[in-house]
């Protein structure tokens, strides 16, 4: 039982990073970024390129992957979302679907569709309080927690974070108060790119690196954000942890191939019963 909880928390932390990224862009730009899945994939592949093809240690490669993806996110914003800044949010979400296709297939174009993995030593799992814990899980927990603390610090303790929260709450009011919206948007994309990049590396360490790895995370990530309440990054973390544990628990009664269906069920129930999520504001029904 403890083992299931542990595995659930670890897979929840994997979902948490992209969920924070999605929640930040959702809050500030007011559209769901469907390209988040392919951003995860691309981050994983940039790191893989440095790690396997060039031979950089994985930690440094992950950093380069995150930086590379932040650049990709900024360029995407400049080329795609900026010209559409004044369009309605449906246009933006259809555009993000287009971005999804471009990014995932750029990955396929450059690196092929084969299943690959990072250059890491295979180690025997540790025993701790009667549970099996492997090195990858420890890394995931440490990196995810560090990233979350960093995001929390930026959001709650810096002028930039205050500006981000202000734009997310009420863009017009924030503009009147002299907050530069474009600067905030750029910062949000950069942070979201870094988070998705690290998430990609962690997902790749936990499983394998292939072009569909990010797409498979779309449902749990969206479920986490909806469960936590749109535009509420801390809620997204709680949502992600709940979903991770729920997915692990579901393997007790469902075949493991249906793990992802848990996210679908959670989305349906949240939308039916409490569409603004656990911690969101009631502003979403029409």
């Amino acid at each position: 039982m403890l083992q299931i909880l542990l595995n659930g928390v670890v897979s929840g932390l994997l979902v948490a990073l992209p969920a924070i990224a999605l929640s930040l862009t959702y809050g500030v730009l007011n559209f769901p970024n469907f390209a988040i899945g392919s951003m995860i994939t691309m981050g994983a592949y940039i790191a893989l390129f440095f790690n396997v093809d060039i031979g950089v240690p994985l930690l440094l490669a992950a950093g380069l992957g995150a930086a590379g993806l932040a650049t990709v996110a900024l360029v995407t914003d400049r080329l795609v979302y900026k010209p559409l800044r004044n369009s309605d949010h449906v246009t933006l979400l259809v555009a993000s679907m287009g971005v999804y296709f471009v990014l995932e297939n750029v990955v396929r174009f450059l690196w092929g569709s084969d299943i690959r993995g990072y250059d890491i030593a295979v180690a025997r799992p540790h025993r701790w309080m009667g549970m099996r814990v492997n090195n990858e899980q420890i890394t995931i927990v440490i990196v995810a927690l560090l990233a979350m603390v960093a995001v929390w610090f930026i959001l709650m303790r810096t002028p930039l974070g205050r500006a981000m929260r202000a734009v997310s709450d009420n863009p017009d009011l924030a503009g009147v108060r002299g907050i530069n919206r474009n600067y905030v948007i750029a910062a949000v994309w950069a942070i979201s790119g870094v988070l998705a990049g690290f998430a990609g590396v962690l997902v790749g360490m936990d499983g394998v690196v292939d072009p569909l790895m990010g797409w498979n995370y779309i449902l749990p990530v969206f479920a986490a954000v909806i469960l936590g309440g749109i535009g509420n990054p801390l809620g997204a973390v709680v949502g992600a942890l709940l979903i991770g544990v729920a997915e692990e628990l579901s393997t007790l009664i469902l075949p493991t191939t249906y793990r992802q269906a848990v996210a679908f069920l959670i989305i349906v129930f949240v939308l039916l019963l409490r569409p603004h999520g656990l911690f969101g504001k009631a502003r979403i029904s029409r």
């Binding site: 769901p32 449902l219 989305i267 939308l271 569409p275």
Partner: peptide, 24 residues
Amino acid sequence: LVSARLREDYLAIATLAFAEAVRL
């Protein structure tokens, strides 16, 4: 019936989730 009361972006997520469930 489940999602028609929701804003467009939620409907997008709900329908995508449905399609993924079908694929599974």
